[in-house]
Amino acid sequence: MAISRRAVFSGLALTLAGCGAPKGKQARLMRPSTLAASNYRAAGIPARFGDTDPHDWEGLAPAQLPVHGIDAARYQGEIDWRRARAAGVSFAWLKATEGGDHVDPGFSVNAHRARAAGIPVGAYHFYYFCRPAEDQARWFIRNVPARAGDLPPVLDIEWNHTSPSCRRRPSAHQVQAEMRRFLAILTAHYGTRPIIYTTVDFWRDAGLRRFAGHEFWLRSVAGHPLDNYPGADWSFWQYSGTGVVPGVPGTVDMNAFAGSPAAWEGWLAARVQRA
């Protein structure tokens, strides 16, 4: 997500520094180059998409799942959502906030356009370990109004190895306590329980297998979640950080829902915001 994807363009590499990103809504969007999915076909992912640095998928591959979507931030610039939907993008999560003082300008630009194109959209918060959980929850709520039909909010929690201002690595007990406080505040406000996005190393270090009762979105770009998260229950799988999707400038994270189109419709009916 915010710091996990590999930068394809050297001009983007310096921007992936967590809390070192420009502050406030006045920050400009990036202007990445446009790539053609047809030039980056890759085995194991849906034929309508591409990948600039694909994994050699064998056995359980993303293309075996029928419902796909993206997550994006300011680095993708302005997305052509109608074209993305026509290519098979069924959902989108957009970075909205980070820590307690950063707003991603891509959210205000892209969220309403995704909704207008008929793509369910939600917001995610990138967690910062040097700010109280309560402050971060209030910051997210301040910048992401509850909206009927939007996807549940997402807590993106992972180790931020490149942060210039916070190298804190709490214990598993502390991490889980902070997560519970953050999630409880958002659940009360939005009326639906947030989804938790995380990575393999954080899942292991924070003991999230024992974090029962929550829905997970797992990053696993070099193997199926069954291989990298043994025993985990998950609803979404981020299978590439270097995807090429029609309508999306540059590269983008690609994701799959763990179910059929009918299951996806049922999930939406049960989980979207009602406010």
Rank of each mutant, 00 (worst) to 15 (best):
T52D: 00
G18F: 01
N110R: 00
A222F: 05
W203M: 00
A13H: 06
L65T: 02
A188Q: 05
R210F: 03
P152W: 08
R28A: 13
Y128S: 03
D205H: 10
A212W: 09
H161A: 14
G213L: 08
F140K: 07
D53K: 14
F140C: 03
S108K: 11
A269P: 06
G24N: 10
A232S: 05
D51C: 12
P164W: 03
W267Y: 15
G266V: 07
A123C: 13
G100V: 03
M30K: 06
A43R: 14
W267P: 02
G106D: 04
Q273H: 10
I3G: 12
E58R: 15
L208V: 14
S90I: 13
W267M: 05
A188N: 03
R204W: 06
T198Y: 06
R167N: 11
F129N: 05
P132Y: 07
D150L: 09
G44D: 02
C166M: 04
S240G: 12
I119D: 06
A116F: 06
A42D: 04
C166H: 14
L218F: 11
W267G: 04
P164S: 04
Q176L: 02
T97M: 05
V103E: 14
F129Y: 11
N228H: 10
R48E: 13
I79H: 09
H68S: 07
H125Y: 09
I70G: 00
G266R: 15
N110S: 12
E265S: 13
Q26V: 15
D71L: 08
I196A: 06
R31D: 13
D80C: 05
T199L: 11
A117R: 15
V200R: 11
R181D: 12
R83L: 06
Y127P: 09
I119Q: 04
T198Q: 15
P46G: 02
Y75L: 15
Y128C: 04
M1E: 06
A177G: 12
G247V: 01
D53M: 13
W81T: 02
G106P: 02
R6Q: 14
L226H: 14
G106Y: 11
S10H: 10
Q238S: 08
V89S: 01
N39R: 13
P66D: 04
M254Y: 05
G149Y: 12
L65C: 05
W57E: 01
A275G: 15
V144F: 03
C19R: 13
R274Y: 00
R113C: 08
E178I: 02
P225N: 06
A123L: 09
A184P: 02
G99R: 03
A17V: 13
P54K: 12
H112A: 14
A117Q: 00
P105E: 11
V8W: 12
R142G: 00
M30Q: 11
R271F: 10
G99P: 02
A146W: 11
I119Y: 11
A2V: 11
S10C: 08
Q273P: 14
S90M: 12
A27S: 14
D201L: 10
A133L: 10
F202D: 08
A148F: 00
P62N: 15
I3D: 05
F126G: 00
P230N: 09
P132H: 07
G250C: 10
E134A: 15
S38K: 02
H125F: 11
S235Y: 01
A114I: 04
A172R: 13
W93I: 01
G243A: 10
W93L: 07
I45T: 12
W264A: 13
T242S: 10
P132V: 08
